[in-house]
Design a protein around this nucleic acid. Sequence first.
DNA 1: CATGAATGAGTGTTCATTCAT
DNA 2: TATGAATGAACACTCATTCAT
Lengths: 210, 210, 210, 210
Amino acid sequence: MSSVAPRHLKARKTPRQARATATVDAIFEATVQLLVADGPHRLTTTRVAERAGVSVGTMYQYFPHKQALLYALNARYLDVLSEKIEATCHAHHGAPLDAMIDALIETYWNAKTERADVTRALYRTAVELDNEALIESFAARVDAATLAMFASASDAKERDLASVNLTLVTVIFGTVRNAFERNLPPPAVEALRGQLAWMCRAYLAATGVR
Amino acid sequence: MSSVAPRHLKARKTPRQARATATVDAIFEATVQLLVADGPHRLTTTRVAERAGVSVGTMYQYFPHKQALLYALNARYLDVLSEKIEATCHAHHGAPLDAMIDALIETYWNAKTERADVTRALYRTAVELDNEALIESFAARVDAATLAMFASASDAKERDLASVNLTLVTVIFGTVRNAFERNLPPPAVEALRGQLAWMCRAYLAATGVR
Amino acid sequence: MSSVAPRHLKARKTPRQARATATVDAIFEATVQLLVADGPHRLTTTRVAERAGVSVGTMYQYFPHKQALLYALNARYLDVLSEKIEATCHAHHGAPLDAMIDALIETYWNAKTERADVTRALYRTAVELDNEALIESFAARVDAATLAMFASASDAKERDLASVNLTLVTVIFGTVRNAFERNLPPPAVEALRGQLAWMCRAYLAATGVR
Amino acid sequence: MSSVAPRHLKARKTPRQARATATVDAIFEATVQLLVADGPHRLTTTRVAERAGVSVGTMYQYFPHKQALLYALNARYLDVLSEKIEATCHAHHGAPLDAMIDALIETYWNAKTERADVTRALYRTAVELDNEALIESFAARVDAATLAMFASASDAKERDLASVNLTLVTVIFGTVRNAFERNLPPPAVEALRGQLAWMCRAYLAATGVR
DNA sequence: CATGAATGAGTGTTCATTCAT
DNA sequence: TATGAATGAACACTCATTCAT
């Protein structure tokens, strides 16, 4: 993922030693904590360093500027998310389409919900960022994984899988995010989740993919 | 819509005279332009005033602080959007469900696409804002309009319309936003739009609403 | 008193008509109220005008700038104070020295204490002002009145009355102000007042004036 | 003295290293210079920093806001003054009362006169400040010192020393300040000083303390 | 004359970034 | 290499004053 980072957003050094990794982790953790606690406009480099237990100078050794830190944080988050989705996809190779849909929704939904505050905080971070590359790369990675999964479905007929895949991914991810942004009461959220799965199945049945 | 604004975010005076309205419009326009051109972090009160052709002081006469300006801008945008959606809903009272779906998707899609840069700029603005109230109010307004529309459908069977309505709205809006955030090539976007309509229809058929 | 005002601090027009006097009074009153309530740094021309029930423009008709307003306010205050002192002095022409001392202390003490908040507020106002002329003029007026009074004392021997007068006035006024600035408990204040009178009498006795 | 500072007026860090002390001194000095030269309303943080030869940022490292700077300046001034008075008091332990009076007047008078402009400038500074605590603490310290001195007088009879002490301190300090505010010609000032001492002696004699 | 909207220089304060130690 | 004091451009916001209506 970091390979797609625009030159000026790259972290200064890839941490190879254990100490460096620990430092970077501490910085990330501090950033998230502050973001969640105080919102993005109270996030200052000094505070991050302080909370992370390092000096500003040291922080600038790892991240040449604030944007780079935020960029890396987002990259890492999307990386983890990609991995989860890929894992789900791999785990469902050869399964029936309905199971795939359910698994995909569940994975994404849980990822967003588990640490909702972090998710929200990261969204807010994106403003100061040129993260199109990040998103595009994330999308590509996910598309590949889901496409491969769907292609392997036990009950799939060969059709325009690419289009179906794009539709499903966009609809699922978009819906989850939207559901997540409105402050719906938990029962409504649950219901929505069920309806979404239902809708995707209906779609697959109607397109004749299945 | 402005009635939901938290006290501290309220605009200072509602412009009654023509000149005042023109000033406020100029300020809004300037804000949008700067937002689109330079991004949110270069948006300073001084620059907005300058570009709007008024003095900072004048600006502060209308908006007690920067947040209030941004808030008002968002409120206005959502207001216009609400109106469009409501218009569409009213125009399709009594129509068949499929036509409603198509109309709803088209309205929302066009609204987002017409001035895509503005849309994007406003999204980025929301970070510095406590706009939950705004979003909630927007959602409520839209929900009401669409629900009434769906209830009037010529081919609707009485069912759990509220749930169906929430699902459709969330899916449509979420999908559009997501499609919009990925930089998909126009043909893919078009295809996606068709698929989305198709999906909604399949969902309605499957739920037995129709 | 206003005759000593430096040119640039002069009020714009001497109010001759009843309406004008009322306006000026309202402005003065508003100023004092705001000063007492919010302190000098929250005293803005707009707020004064608003509270006084006139427009800023009108206010600027009477006072060419903020300093002029403050200057005039101080002048008026000192004018009233001078008059009180003069009245006391006249009333005690020919009285014995001790009675004069007591009367002088009482008059000044009461004037400061009656509306302590106003007094304090005005002191704080003086910072932004070049009020030396005001003070000098006040001092001269008071000196003349007290000197004349002391000269008329039934039990005065002719001596260096000018020096004695200066001493008494300076000591009394200085002590009152100092007592006033420390937040002494009322009993201590009362005691102090008695001691001050006692001290002045002892001084007069010792200098052989009496 | 600094221990009495309200929390929000506290200086940010107590300078321990030589460099820091020098910086703080430079800031204080610059403040005084500007205050004397241009008056309090031209005293801006930027100008202070500039004149002190540091950046604004550095200044804010030592003083969290302008008020804190002014507060610290006053505190320091009163601290020095307290020390001078205490020194005088200690130096006259066991002396006769008249000598004490003379010494006290001289010390205070000189302190005020030596750098009259600074004194005046600091007075004007107090307006924007909540310095009651400062004044109270100063008064308490001085009261204690003078009381101890008077109690040790070789010719003192035991009487209500506390009251006498309060009276003397208030009268002396008040008179000096008042004399100082009127722009008396130097000979008059000198005469006044003599009369003040004379008055205090007469008071002591009359009260039977001596 | 009275009004009060408009002005814009000026203010206190922040914070990403650097660099001497 | 790590530190954190120093920097200073940049910002949001105020308010005395003016002048078109």
